[in-house]
Every structure is written in structure tokens, then in C-alpha cells.
Design a protein around this nucleic acid. Sequence first.
DNA 1: CGAGAAACCTAACGATCGATAGGCAGGTGG
DNA 2: CCACCTGCCTATCGATCGTTAGGTTTCTCG
Lengths: 198, 198
Amino acid sequence: MEERVARRKSSAERRTEIVSAAAAIFASRGYAAVGMRDIADAVGIRGASLYHHFSSKEEILYAICLTVTQEPVEQNLPLLDAPGTPTERLTTLIGAHIRHLLHRRVEYVVGQHERPALTGEHRADIDQYLHYYNRRVRDVLVAGMRSGEFRELDPGLAALGILDMLNGVSGWIRGEADDDADDVVASHTALVLGGLRA
Amino acid sequence: MEERVARRKSSAERRTEIVSAAAAIFASRGYAAVGMRDIADAVGIRGASLYHHFSSKEEILYAICLTVTQEPVEQNLPLLDAPGTPTERLTTLIGAHIRHLLHRRVEYVVGQHERPALTGEHRADIDQYLHYYNRRVRDVLVAGMRSGEFRELDPGLAALGILDMLNGVSGWIRGEADDDADDVVASHTALVLGGLRA
DNA sequence: CGAGAAACCTAACGATCGATAGGCAGGTGG
DNA sequence: CCACCTGCCTATCGATCGTTAGGTTTCTCG
């Protein structure tokens, strides 16, 4: 038996533990319907003790939202700078986006549903990441239209439509393994690039 | 001056007034963060008086969710039964879907964000409408694949992707006039049917 | 015009919320 | 070994929540 006396956790450990536990509860019951005591119960401490790690409930929500806006900007967007045609770069991005979303599924659900609950400053921060991500996707569409690979569509509307389709995956996908993503990545990539028409 | 003494409103008028006022507040601040007194203020009555029209706060949310699930089933889906090729019928549906969404924009925002807050029975009702709508869209995709108009894709995944893209419009569209929808309908229809590729 | 229904009111309930104050214990560096 | 910091505790605050009880005003219809 590897059982030990419950070791005291470091601050960094607790923070990530609280964030992921809160994300799971927020995702299933909604941000405002969850109390600090509910979050505390999930990690085995008392409600008031949460304030040693976060200064408010909204700070926890902010941390969750950051992982689904800052991380994609820092991890997915560099793929758009790699060499290759716009088609190849967009294909790579779609795969990375869906796989990241699968990896942080509950956080995406919270981020998409509870953003209006953020404070002004925090809300502005998150919106800035989202807006930048959107702009970079639009830019690769513009590049593809210039090169003649893509049809002439309104690049802003197309980028919004594509991202809505990708982010919507978090609402219905089951499973968390990378294998579970393969079908969705293949289908959505084909749909975005070629549409339904035979 | 047409100003009259404030006339007492009929029950039916008040109900729709409450629902649309509540939808607007729920959309901007979130369901759980809004109190019955906030809704009452918006229609010029006291918090307790709301209970003469709805038996609970959740009943108001349920009424909002119904308008964005029942109405599309009853108004949009019959278009799929009209004569025409799958391409024509899907095109018609996309236009009707986006225009209905534009007409009930705030209600869509609430319906997509606050569905988890519904009670078991009400939640099941709403999910049933959504599931049926999804199935009918998938069916027209299957019909198109059989006729050779559409490529061979997983029809379930494609239907989910297309509906995510259409419903996502409620998150960023501005304006409520039918003219504002024309560009979005044209762009999204082209994207779904033909994809990005030239 | 009068009676009853309908719409709305004031007042208040128990519960629960986010957050604070102050104390206790266990791990750590001098 | 002791002082200290840190992670967590108990206890509690004031505010606000959804909802109910019971009275008052306005409309409607015979």
C-alpha cells in the first residue's frame, strides 16, 4: 500500500487542483449556482480556506477562462507561422484547436458559458485573447484567397463561422483520449475546406 | 400628448413582456446572477407580483428556452418537407434558421448558455426539441449523400458542426433587421455547401 | 351598479451567499 | 530548539436570494 498520511499540499499544487475542480463543477451546474463551499468540498478543505489561494470567486473563474484563451493563443497560433500553404496551415490549426479543446473540455464549456460573469478588467483581458485568435484565423483565410486556394468570401464572417463550429465541439464530444478526436478532426477539416458538395 | 394613465395590462401581455425583459437581462448578466426583483423592475412591478404570472424563476427561463427550441421545430423544419433537392431544402433551412435566430437573438443567447440551469423535466423537454431538430438536419444530409449531391461524410458529425456554426451567430451578430442577416446567410450557406476551397 | 376575479401591493420568512477576522498546527530555516 | 511562515481552521458578518402570506386596487361582466 502506497497510502501515506495526507501530505500538506504546496500552494501551486492546490491552485491547479482548485481550478480544475471548480471547472468541473461550474461546467455541470453553472458558475453562479456553485458556492465557494461546494468548490472547497471538492478539494477537501473548508470554504474560507480558498481565500488563501484566490482573492475571490471570480478570480477562480478568471483562471479557468485564461486556460482556454491564453493557451490556444500561445500554443496553437504559432502553427500558423510555420511554412506551408494557407490550406496546410489552416488544416494544422484545426487539428490543434480541436485537440486542445478536447484536452481542456470542461474549461472550454465554462469559458464559453460564463464569460459574462467576469469583472470588467478580466472580461476585457479574455476578450482580447479571443479577438486576437479570431483575427489570426481571418488572416490565414485572406492569405488563401489571395493565393487563389480559397474562394472569395467575407473573411471575417467565415472566420467567425469556422471558429463557432470548432468551439461548438466542446458541447457534445464524449471521451478525452486523442483517438476520440481523430474522427471529429477529419470530418470538420473536410467540411471547412470542401463543404458538403460532392 | 398621447400619454394616458398607465393601463393595467392583460395576463397574456404581461407574460410575454416578462419573458422578453427577463431574456434581455439573463443574456447580459447570466441567469443565476439576476434576481426576481431585477426582472420585476424592468417591467415596472414588484418582485412578488411575478408569481401571479410564473410559479418560479425557472419557469421564466423555461419559457425563454421554449421559444428557441419549439419555435424552430415548428416553423423551420416544415421547410425540409417542401419539394426540392436536398441542396435546395438545406439552403432554405439555413436561411430560415439564421433569420429566426436574428429575430429572437437574446433568447438564443440565454437558451444556449443557461440550459444546464433548467430542472430535470424542463431540461428533458428542451433537449428533446434540440435532438429532434438535429436529427432532421442529419436526415437531409443523408438524403443528399444518397442522391450524390453531397460528399460522403459522417452525417451526425456534419450536422452537429453545421448547427454549431449557425447557432454561434447569436454570439456576435449586431442589428436585428432582416437586411442585417442577408450577408451572414449568404456567407454561411456558401461555406456549408462549398467550403473554403476555390 | 355591484360583485367577483385578476393584477399588484407590502412585509417578511428562512436559507444561503461571498467574504472577513482571528486562532491553531505543522513544516522549515536559523 | 525555537521563531516563523504558511496552509487551514472555526465562527460569523451583512447582504441578498426565491418564495409565501395576506391585504388593496383595478378591471370586467352580468
